[in-house]
Design a protein around this nucleic acid. Sequence first.
DNA 1: TTGATTCACTGAACTAGTTAAGCTATTCTT
DNA 2: AAGAATAGCTTAACTAGTTCAGTGAATCAA
Lengths: 366, 366
Amino acid sequence: MPQTTMRQIADRAGVSVATVSYVLNSTCNVPIGTETRARVHAIANELGYHRSLLGRSIKQPLRHIGVAVGAPDQTEQTYTAELFAGIREQTLDAGYYPVLQPMPHQIGQSAGADLVRRVGEVHRSKLIDGFIIDKAPFLTAPLVELYEQGVPLVLVNSVPDVRTSDGRPVPIVNVDNRLGASLAAHHLLELGHRRIGLILPDSGGTRLEPTANRILDVLHGYRDAISAAGLPRDDALIMQGDLVDRACTQKAVESMMRLAAAPTALFVADDAMAVMAINALRRLGLSVPGNVSVIGYGDWPIVSRLAEPPLTTVHTPLRDNGRLAAKLLIDFLETGSVNDPSIVIEPRLIVRASTAPCRAATKGSA
Amino acid sequence: MPQTTMRQIADRAGVSVATVSYVLNSTCNVPIGTETRARVHAIANELGYHRSLLGRSIKQPLRHIGVAVGAPDQTEQTYTAELFAGIREQTLDAGYYPVLQPMPHQIGQSAGADLVRRVGEVHRSKLIDGFIIDKAPFLTAPLVELYEQGVPLVLVNSVPDVRTSDGRPVPIVNVDNRLGASLAAHHLLELGHRRIGLILPDSGGTRLEPTANRILDVLHGYRDAISAAGLPRDDALIMQGDLVDRACTQKAVESMMRLAAAPTALFVADDAMAVMAINALRRLGLSVPGNVSVIGYGDWPIVSRLAEPPLTTVHTPLRDNGRLAAKLLIDFLETGSVNDPSIVIEPRLIVRASTAPCRAATKGSA
DNA sequence: TTGATTCACTGAACTAGTTAAGCTATTCTT
DNA sequence: AAGAATAGCTTAACTAGTTCAGTGAATCAA
């Protein structure tokens, strides 16, 4: 394929490359004669000219945005898709192009170092202007270092507050999981439930920092709601399941329902685990929401379609999350700074059919 | 951040840029003195030099591979993740870097045109050397045109056989869904089932060509197995569900079980829909696999964890799919051609707990 | 001692588009 | 008609690393 260059057009038209560049960019402050303009356009069309991004990037930014996301386990996939959809909308509208780099940066520190190296490399090479980095575990320190060195980046769903060594805040967009958990618990309390079990996803040894933070936030949100309702704290009602191993979630549900004061409602802090919990309850001969109400977390689209009954859950607006992160980054790229670099996104309660008023409460009041 | 260049190193070391390049690339055929070599290395370390990809790409290819995938509905996400995991392994091992471009190219023709334009642009600009394009609907023609113009690309899970205008085959890696469907049906036949319902995912109006092909392949594979077993063809046992709308799948299951000769087993050609089908059967008071066996298709990881009972299904080795596509592309990039440009991947039966011997058959034989 | 060979390195072309500065004519002002 | 302004275009520097051809000096063979 004969790659057409401006030089070829210039030669044919009998003008300089600069003139061709001015014509094709319709730069107004340099006047070019109507006739020359037409001739250049005609020849460009004839030769099927397409501008080279690489050439343009000598003087101008490429307007590419790197998006680093991890896809370690299955729950993350629908998470990533939603987040990226938001980023896509915002960037394309602003004339930027999002490039996804699915780095397994959540698996360990060595892979994380790969990501940091790669981010530095493509930025120095001017291949990518700025970065959106999702759930950066163990990486806050090296990423802040990059930020201090002038690499524009926005963190997503990482630690709550990140600052440079001289105290400037690093742009970040987080979902308020504490609020989300509190919404879930509050919904169950409003339905009259008084013993509400909490099943958290595993945050075991190798798991990543931001996920652990999310789990802690959920725990705190749950406790906020419980204590706001004037109920005593009961740690027997808090257990950990596992995102991957169904037997683990099942065991957690079974042992919780075996308690003398068994819960009448379960808050399972991940939709996929919530479905496993519903299955486990069914095996125990308990109906949902007849005997036990179940509320999930995340509103993962695929899961809500597979749940029986349809799952009441907490929607985390990941699309907004992506959109705002992209907006923050583009503002930074265009103006060199951002007004409000720390954005918190509020989850919403989605009531479907897996929660119902507490029977015990109805009986008690009757 | 003061971006260090070879010029700076050269100036400090009192040598030319060429010498620095030779030293840092340890090019063997050009001899450089031990002392100069050491000095250049020392200065490079001191200044914290990192090679610019953009500079290098003047003479050398960037070794970037573009991966175009769509993520329109939820089923696709785990599909994409598996595929990309395979591509990642293969490309990184070979020193190439995969860049994901999640284009919504499966939504319509205009978005598809965007993808084709983008592919041409980044290839002309030498930003990306070659492309892996997944399920290119409506796009075969323009993509083949690009291939003829010298853009290295490999298609994945598209139409069975693609050729250029002069008859050369375009590299392609497809999963043999006809075989996969036949495996599923054969498994049920071996368990003694004689009336096997087939529920296909919707291929409605706006759906894409390759998906429609997949559905047809599944249909043919099912019929292959049925007729090989000497059973009559019964189109009442074939229905369409919907990947998104659970009510639709439920209706299909209900009306099928209402037949005078109701099936004793269902082959539901998508795991997510298979879970919906199990829920629908349970609502009808039928147990799985006690009354009705259910086999899925795809072996989507998230779904197999949520199914109750664990789903017997057909595993489509998407990781291999990605790996082989990447291998094909890299071979093409390095040698300029490939030996066997058309690869077919064979699915495997995964037996879990949602299928069991046919009771009717046992009764009949007793 | 001459000629060839090798060592160690340099110069310059290459890629491809952007843009500030400069240079002719021509037109306009007074 | 001199001087200024302006339209219309060109020149050249910019980016940054790769690589071929070439050059000067030292080494070695005859």
